[in-house]
Structure formats: C-alpha cells, structure tokens
C-alpha cells in the first residue's frame, strides 16, 4: 500500500480535483493519496469527487486557509 502526495496550493477549482484525477492511473486499490490545497471550495469538491469515484475520504485537516485530505483508492 503506497502513499503519494500532491501539492495543489495556489490552484483554483477544479484544478486540484483534476490533479487528483491525473493520479488515478498510477494508484492501486488501497493506496493513499494526500492532497494539500487552499482553494475555498476544495473540501466540498473532494467530497463530491470521492462520492462519484467511489473512493474513501479518510481525513480532512485544516491548517490556516489550507486543507489536507487523505484519500484511499
């Protein structure tokens, strides 16, 4: 089970979600993707994305204006 990360700080919606999408081909079942972003709609977008793509949103941490999410594939 590998852990990968994306720094999407400074990107506006839907770019952080597209970055997550671009990682899809290299992620295997059970892998964890950690994404950090500061777009105001990021958390909602990731929740929507996980729901649609049937992935598990393990955690959302907020530090200042940035949010870090952990997604299990």
């Amino acid at each position: 089970m590998a852990e990968k990360s994306i720094d999407a700080k400074g990107l506006r919606c839907p770019q952080p979600v597209l970055k997550i999408a671009a990682k899809l081909p290299e992620m295997k079942a059970g892998d964890i993707l950690i994404v950090e972003a500061d777009c105001p709609t990021f958390e909602d977008d990731v929740r929507k994305w996980c729901d649609r793509m049937k992935k598990t949103l393990l955690a959302v941490n907020t530090v200042g204006s940035a949010k870090t999410v952990r997604i299990q594939f």
Binding site: P14, V17, D45, K48, R52, M53
Partner: peptide, 17 residues
C-alpha cells in the same frame, strides 16, 4: 460546470486505469 467536466475527466482516467 467546471466540476462536472472535472468529474467526467476523472471517469476517463478511471477507465484508463
């Protein structure tokens, strides 16, 4: 609209994967 596009693109990548 942009999220809808992003979700469709995600599905494409999912299919590719």
């Amino acid at each position: 609209s942009s999220m809808d596009v992003a979700l469709v693109i995600s599905e494409c990548f999912q299919a590719l994967a």
